[in-house]
Design a protein around this nucleic acid. Structure first.
Lengths: 135, 135
DNA sequence: TGTCTGTTATATATTATATATAACAGTTAT
DNA sequence: ATAACTGTTATATATAATATATAACAGACA
């Protein structure tokens, strides 16, 4: 109902479709977007945030490929009704590969394991129960 | 002394200079590269790993800009003798921004805070005291 | 004097990102 | 049935990022 607000940084080196993809993932993580929720059409969302339809489509396609959405031919995109597929070995392996250079740099800069987990905890908490629109 | 081995994946969507940059950061984090250590010249390293001199130079320049290296005009690149600059507010803010979508996805896939920290701990441990070449 | 540094310049090729327009084929509401 | 809406496909274009190739420069140094 309450349309999730998308905010893109046109100056960022992060591609627009990636920014959009990430914000939708964060919306799901924070329960602003729930299983079965309909997303705006590629044309509507593109119009609303001022970018091209194909850029939105690229983000949607990636999210579908990653299991966050289902896209139906003449209906649109829905947050996967069955919920996001749970972590498998392939994903865990990829997660480790992504985290490794980030943690390596943090360690170089004097951030010990405990401080790092504190930062992660703050992020986990920041994703907690936003957009609770139960009557 | 013992030359750090660099392994690049030519098929990866990750740019070569980023892969190289990350492996050097991981080398520093795991004490394979110590403050004051000399890195191979851009030509030598490029030859050794089979890429272009400018690609190596781009990685070195980025590492210098990030404070990992110092590069001297006619000498070469050294791991920063004074150690890597400690985390400041700017870095911590950037770290949070990078971690947020990663943690959001992990949360979507059913990985709770505790499991996430376990993964981080394993990575921290994997960066511990590799390449100990004290006699 | 050579030989080693990083550096700068130029050129080229390929891929990724982003936009613009148009059309197609189904769905759905009027 | 008509109109409006879906994602999809196709084509074209522009710009930036990535990577390579070659050449030359200027300082250090044995």
């Amino acid at each position: 109902m309450t349309d999730m607000l998308i905010q893109l940084d046109m100056e960022s080196k992060e591609p627009l479709y990636t920014q959009l993809r990430n914000q939708i993932v964060e919306g799901i993580a924070s329960y602003q977007l729930k299983p079965g929720d309909a997303l705006p059409s590629v044309r509507t969302l593109a119009q609303d945030i001022g970018i091209n339809l194909h850029t939105v489509n690229k983000a949607y396609k990636q999210l579908e490929q990653e299991g966050f959405l289902i896209i139906q031919r003449q209906k649109g995109a829905l947050i996967h009704p069955g919920g996001v597929p749970k972590a498998d070995d392939r994903y865990l392996h990829e997660l480790t590969n992504v985290l490794k250079p980030i943690i390596a740099e943090a360690k170089c800069r004097g951030i010990a394991y405990e401080q790092f987990t504190t930062i992660c905890q703050e992020i986990y908490l920041s994703l907690h129960k936003k957009g609770d629109n139960t009557s």
